[in-house]
């Protein structure tokens, strides 16, 4: 565990907590894409299958359980408890356009043709694109609440920090995983436009508003 990896995980954890608190405190999930949240639930479920048969560390198990339960809780809050506040008119991204191609890609390009390995690879590919419905929603409405921007910033930073962690691990441990690295790069690049707006607008106290 290096500092980049730890900061990445904490950033990821912070993003999830921000989102849950926002929904809980405001009793509303307006501006949040339920489609992205469903994709994240699929990502964690298919990635953390090893939770039942592989023990890595207490930290690893703990974080996996937190990510899984927080993600299912978010989906529950959005589609059940606070359903009335869900922006379904704007959340129109077709998730099958992400799920099916990433699944086919995982079948074709993986480390090992086993069920668990293909599902892990699928989760990595899908995660890299899972934020697209959320970014699509923001671009459709043309704005995002500050709290939603903080959520997106923390969530985007997490994979960026993982990239630094992978550079570190390559040199320090001779460890690298090309599938994770390429997908992580794609994932981080998708946030670049948002990072720019976040730094130039939200951090200066302005609302994140896209040019008309």
């Amino acid at each position: 565990m290096n500092i980049f990896r730890l900061l990445g995980d904490l950033s990821h954890l912070l993003a999830i907590i921000i989102l849950l608190l926002k929904i809980w405190k405001t009793r509303s999930c307006a501006g949040i894409s339920g489609k992205s949240q469903i994709l994240f639930a699929i990502v964690y479920t298919t990635r953390y299958l090893d939770l039942v048969n592989t023990y890595i560390s207490a930290y690893n198990t703990f974080m996996k359980i937190i990510f899984l339960s927080a993600s299912y809780t978010t989906v529950y809050l959005m589609y059940m408890k606070f359903k009335a506040t869900y922006d379904h008119n704007h959340d129109t991204f077709r998730i099958e356009f992400l799920v099916l191609p990433t699944f086919v890609l995982a079948l074709l390009i993986n480390h090992e043709p086993s069920v668990v390995e293909v599902l892990w690879t699928f989760s990595i590919y899908l995660e890299s694109l899972a934020i697209l419905p959320q970014l699509f929603l923001v671009s459709k409405t043309g704005e995002a609440e500050s709290i939603t921007s903080h959520y997106l910033f923390a969530l985007g930073s997490y994979r960026g920090l993982y990239l630094l962690n992978w550079v570190y691990r390559y040199y320090a441990e001779d460890h690298y995983d090309l599938i994770a690295i390429v997908a992580g790069l794609v994932q981080t690049v998708l946030y670049c436009d948002f990072f720019y707006l976040y730094i130039t607008k939200v951090l200066k106290g302005k609302k994140l508003q896209l040019p008309a």
């Binding site: 890595i56 690893n60 480390h111 962690n165 995983d177």
Partner: peptide, 10 residues
């Protein structure tokens, strides 16, 4: 590299 398949990351 033998630990490629040890998924110690999240």
């Amino acid at each position: 590299i033998d630990d490629v398949n040890l998924k110690d990351e999240l």
